[in-house]
Design a protein around this nucleic acid. Structure first.
Lengths: 106, 106
DNA sequence: TTAATATGATACCAAATGGTATCTCATTTG
DNA sequence: CAAATGAGATACCATTTGGTATCATATTAA
């Protein structure tokens, strides 16, 4: 799917997909198991898994007739990289905000 | 707009909006200035700014007939919070990956 | 005050998105 | 083998999204 930063951010933009990521952080799961946790069809969950896979956030291990979905830590890297670009900015602004609050409280 | 985590993630899901965030990290800009940087109409840029504003990522200061758009560091907090939930997970997985690679290279 | 500038608002459109229903295929299991 | 199970694929649908065109409004400048 080419642009990993875009695909990863896109994958995280949906609340159901973020929930899936959190569930898979606890343990690997099949589509069937995931579907049990949501109020939607297996086909819908499958679509979300495809988007997560395109984003590099999960991988699938075929095991007999089951597919084990597993979180891929490397997939989050582009997101963290992009965000880290602002580390200094956030720090500076948050610090000046904090200082402003402290000045006011005197 | 209520759900800040969702709105912030949604705001970051579009490449144009991420570019806007990066531009505003360098300096505050009006819509007109931002529009000069993109190959789209002012109306389109305005829509992106609205989404960024809903996500709490920018604020606007009215100044005469101009509107100064400025990055809001606090807006990124819900995103960083959500991601930080996985810090330990990423660390563990990346470490075991690293170890696996090292074992293989022996 | 009139014209230019900076922006907002709205109607409209094509494409993408999130979902269902349905059919097929592969692997277990009785 | 036959039936049940787990999953993929596709067609279809309503809504959202990203964009344009156009018109209206407020402020600044001539």
């Amino acid at each position: 799917m080419e642009n990993q930063t875009q695909n990863a951010f896109r994958a995280l933009a949906d609340p159901t997909r973020r929930d899936i990521v959190q569930l898979l952080a606890v343990q690997d799961m099949t589509i069937g198991q995931l579907t049990d946790r949501f109020d939607m069809t297996r086909a819908a969950v499958k679509k979300h898994l495809t988007v997560l896979s395109d984003g590099g956030l999960i991988s699938v291990e075929v095991r007999g007739r089951e597919r084990i979905n597993r979180l891929e830590p490397l997939g989050m890297a582009p997101v963290l990289d992009w965000l880290s670009y602002f580390d200094q900015f956030w720090d500076d602004r948050l610090n000046s905000l904090k200082e402003a609050v402290e000045r006011k409280s005197k």
